[in-house]
Computed example of a mutant assay.
Amino acid sequence: MKTILIPLSVVAWLGAGFSVHAASTIDLTVKGLITPMACTPTFVGGGLVDFGKISRNDLNLTKGTRLPLHYLTLTVNCNGAARYALRMRDNREGTGHVNSEIFYGLGLDHSGNKLGVYSLTFDPAQTVADSVPVIYGTESTTGGVAWRTSNSNPIDIGSRSYLGFTDQVGSTLGPSAIQNLSATVKLEATINARQNLVLDEETPLDGSATLEVVYL
């Protein structure tokens, strides 16, 4: 029995020793690419949307109240033709009463209730890029690995997806290289149902988001 058990224990020990040795080191590789490209996004007029004073009595009791549409002009100017995409980061994350990447929060009332949401919609038909006669929109939900077939449909900009533009219809290759872009963007805001809010004092809408240019 000992002549059988001793070799087995040695084999087990050697196997364990080999496993530990094989896992004792690991390599880390850090990569990146510094590009000379630089693009500056700008909302004409400073990117401020002010709905003014809204009476609580004008808000729907049991469902959301849509506020009047607002339109903004966005320009993206680069120091050369560049492939890039756009995405938004919500600076009031967690304050929207609808959970979706295309909706951004409007802050909280003094009791911590969620005031509402807003969205930004890009329309390729209202977008001009360089001297290209027609622009199409495309979108990636995989960080730019794969792109939706480009078309002329309006697109809501999201916080977890990329939005880009191309001069090629029906393409899955992603955005074209663009130097100067101008787009009319629709902003739509909805206030939460009045029954879900405490509005016994003046309550400011406090939406804030950051538009980011992602270089591809």
Rank of each mutant, 00 (worst) to 15 (best):
I4P: 04
P7H: 04
L8N: 12
S9W: 14
S9E: 14
W13K: 15
L14F: 08
L14S: 13
G15M: 07
G15N: 07
A16W: 13
F18Y: 11
V20K: 12
I26Q: 15
D27W: 09
D27Q: 13
D27E: 15
D27S: 12
L33D: 14
L33A: 15
I34Y: 07
I34K: 09
M37C: 12
T42C: 06
T42Y: 04
T42G: 03
F43N: 00
G45H: 00
G47R: 01
L48Y: 08
V49R: 00
D50E: 08
K53I: 13
I54K: 08
S55W: 06
N57P: 10
N57T: 14
L59D: 00
N60A: 08
L61Y: 14
T62N: 10
K63C: 10
K63I: 08
K63T: 12
K63E: 09
G64D: 10
G64C: 09
T65A: 00
L69D: 10
H70R: 12
H70N: 13
Y71F: 15
Y71V: 05
L72H: 06
T73D: 03
L74H: 00
V76P: 01
N77A: 15
N79T: 01
G80N: 12
A81M: 09
A81R: 10
M88Y: 03
M88G: 03
D90K: 01
N91C: 07
R92D: 07
E93G: 05
G94K: 04
V98W: 03
E101N: 09
I102Q: 13
Y104L: 14
G105Q: 08
L106P: 03
S111Q: 15
G112D: 04
K114I: 03
L115G: 01
L115I: 03
Y118A: 04
S119V: 06
S119W: 04
L120Y: 05
A125Q: 15
Q126H: 13
T127L: 02
T127S: 02
T127Q: 02
V128W: 11
V132S: 11
T138Q: 08
T138N: 08
A146T: 15
W147R: 06
T149A: 11
N151P: 05
N151R: 08
N153H: 06
P154D: 10
D156K: 11
I157P: 00
G158D: 02
S161D: 04
Y162M: 05
L163I: 05
G164C: 04
G164W: 01
T166S: 01
T166D: 01
Q168R: 08
G170M: 03
L173F: 03
G174V: 00
Q179C: 04
N180I: 10
V185Q: 00
K186M: 09
L187D: 01
L187M: 10
E188P: 11
D200T: 10
D200S: 09
E201S: 07
E201G: 06
P204Q: 07
L205C: 03
S208L: 11
S208T: 09
T210V: 14
T210P: 12
Y215Q: 07
Y215M: 05
L216G: 05
L216H: 08
L216P: 03
